[in-house]
Design a protein around this nucleic acid. Structure first.
Lengths: 122, 122
DNA sequence: ACGATACGTAGGGAATTCCCTACCCGTCAA
DNA sequence: TTGACGGGTAGGGAATTCCCTACGTATCGT
């Protein structure tokens, strides 16, 4: 079946993709934590917490910026980065429909839930 | 400063990394949704919803498995995949400390919150 | 104006991602 | 037993990730 060689399938980056990808890195999650616990900070102050070179951190900040998770404000020769939590709120919204799954699981009735749909047998 | 060429810095994959990375792909999120709304299903039935070749989907399932987001049960020549929501519950726990940020933001008092820590000026 | 400071960008390299085709093995039906 | 079916694995290629060093640019203090 399917004789065509299949197209390149460009998925184009869904925004949701960018947020999760940004969170899929310990350094970037730590940056978010630092901004959450320490308030808006310049790059230097953030860089003090990491073993990597500053330009690398700069690129992590770029990833976070493009995901909408931080914003920057120029203050003289410094750039103050600030946590932007809106995308995280969307992550929570995305989690919503899954919530009942771990609730029932923790309550020990996972089996029951799985049987609600009944057409998986051919 | 720092004359040493800097070590390879192997981060070893934090588990949290694997979960977020698994979620950073529309195909894999769609698989989770299908398992959530349609209950446990064999690979074929999942594959019907995607334009990609089945082996590619198989690898997506592997990523989800290694993140603990799905489990497989063998049934004859079929493999039944099932949603495992526990890692998602951990994601929600991770979100917890950020929640007040978008709450106050939505309430229009973001400025106020940012001023609670006061040592960001040198 | 001059050097130091704060930060971004360029470019490169190793590793990983994400798709593909080809191939393998186990199971069911005839 | 012989196919056909269900699904994983091998291997490859283009693109992306994540780190690095080198460099450019704007601002501050002197």
């Amino acid at each position: 079946m399917n004789a065509t060689p299949a197209p390149p399938a460009a998925l184009s980056e869904s925004g949701q993709d960018r947020v999760f990808a940004a969170l899929a890195n310990g350094t970037r999650r730590e940056v978010l934590r630092l901004l959450r616990d320490g308030g808006p900070q310049p790059v230097q102050q953030l860089a003090d917490h990491f073993a990597m070179r500053r330009p690398s951190l700069s690129e992590h900040l770029k990833v976070l910026r493009e995901a909408g998770l931080v914003s920057e404000e120029r203050a003289g020769r410094r750039r103050i980065y600030r946590l932007e939590a809106a995308p995280l709120s969307e992550v929570q919204d995305w989690l919503g429909p899954y919530e009942r799954f771990w609730r029932t699981k923790l309550a020990g009735l996972g089996e029951l839930l799985d049987r609600i749909p009944d057409d998986e047998a051919r």
